[in-house]
Computed example of a mutant assay.
Amino acid sequence: MNRNSILSILFLLGLLACGPKRLQREYMPHSVHFAHRDWWIKSSPEIQGPGSNVFSYRNVWVDWQGHLHLKVREKDNRWTCAEVYTKDSLGYGRYEMEVEGQLGDLDPYLVFGFFTWDPHTFEDQANSEIDIEFSRWGFPLAPRVLHYSVHPVSLQKLFLERFQSSNSNPQNWNGRSRHIMEWRDTSITFYSYRINRRDEELLESFHYSFKNPPRKKGVEGQFSEAITVPKPGESNQARFNLWIFGAKEAPLNERETEIIIRDFRYEAY
């Protein structure tokens, strides 16, 4: 066996050895420190929800200014998404983010979400989920891009009182904006501000209260208890994500997208 053949075999063995290590690294827990908090990064080579996505720690980082970056990108012919969530448990309170990006021109297949979630409260509190989301939900000509919701928002039909889609011009959300969720035991109120050079302007709000009818959540044949305003569970988290909607394997325009969360604040009530 000549020298070149030996080198080729050694190279192939090296690739085989690195493969499991790369997979192991994807499964390892990764975290970032942002806005005076520690955040877990969702990362796995397997498909996970929301949608049918692969999430990678490589799509999340904090820059030298302390801003959190989320990115959807392609590597090795595979599109991957980004999600982070607080290590500590949060409850009733004021959740606030300042975000920067072209949210008004977000790819029709992409969703940027700022929301609360508890993995253990499906049966009694519909996962304690409230959302601010930017998306056109797969419709390129959809005129609305900003949406508020208090889950559950649907069970065979939409519960119209549990969500609101903003009529504001989507271009208002290009650049910097500030968004707030005020979560109390009797109500949830949302606010969205456009940040200009010298000031900011309130462009959208939505108020939801216990006076609305209770609703159930249905998932794969299971149903939650009927709820009005969800209660936070013991593992309630604040989350940010950027992901591909539905069963799509890539953004419609097949371009990488990056969103910057400049700040996050939480004040307990």
Rank of each mutant, 00 (worst) to 15 (best):
E201P: 05
Q156K: 15
E123G: 12
Q102C: 12
S205K: 02
L242T: 07
F159L: 15
W173T: 01
D38H: 11
E256Y: 03
R58Q: 12
G66A: 04
Q156V: 14
Y191E: 12
Q24V: 15
F210D: 05
E256P: 05
V54W: 01
L106T: 08
R58G: 07
F139T: 13
F240T: 04
N212L: 05
S5G: 11
L146T: 01
V111G: 03
W117T: 09
R198W: 09
K248V: 00
T257N: 06
P213A: 08
T116A: 10
L12F: 09
E220I: 14
S135M: 10
S187Y: 06
W243N: 06
F163E: 13
R262I: 07
G66N: 08
H151N: 14
S205A: 00
E182V: 01
R239E: 08
Y148K: 01
N59F: 00
S31L: 07
L7N: 13
S154F: 02
A268L: 05
L158F: 10
K217I: 08
G233R: 07
G138C: 06
Q102V: 02
P251H: 06
L15G: 14
L155Q: 05
I180W: 06
P140Y: 05
I227E: 06
I227F: 03
N253D: 12
D185H: 14
F206N: 15
G66L: 03
R198T: 14
H207A: 08
V54S: 07
R37E: 01
L7H: 12
E256I: 02
L103S: 04
G14E: 03
L146F: 01
R198L: 13
G91P: 05
L242G: 06
F122Y: 09
G218V: 11
C81S: 05
A238L: 13
L12H: 03
E249F: 05
E161R: 03
P50C: 00
N77G: 14
E46W: 10
E258V: 10
N172C: 11
F163S: 14
Q171A: 10
P50F: 00
T86H: 04
L12C: 03
Y27L: 12
V150A: 11
A226C: 01
S224T: 03
F210I: 04
F34S: 03
L13S: 09
L90K: 06
D131E: 00
I188R: 03
K216W: 15
F134K: 08
P143S: 02
Q102F: 06
R239C: 15
S31A: 15
K157Y: 14
L146K: 04
G113C: 07
S52N: 13
N174M: 11
L203R: 00
N236T: 12
A35W: 14
S166I: 07
F122S: 09
N2A: 09
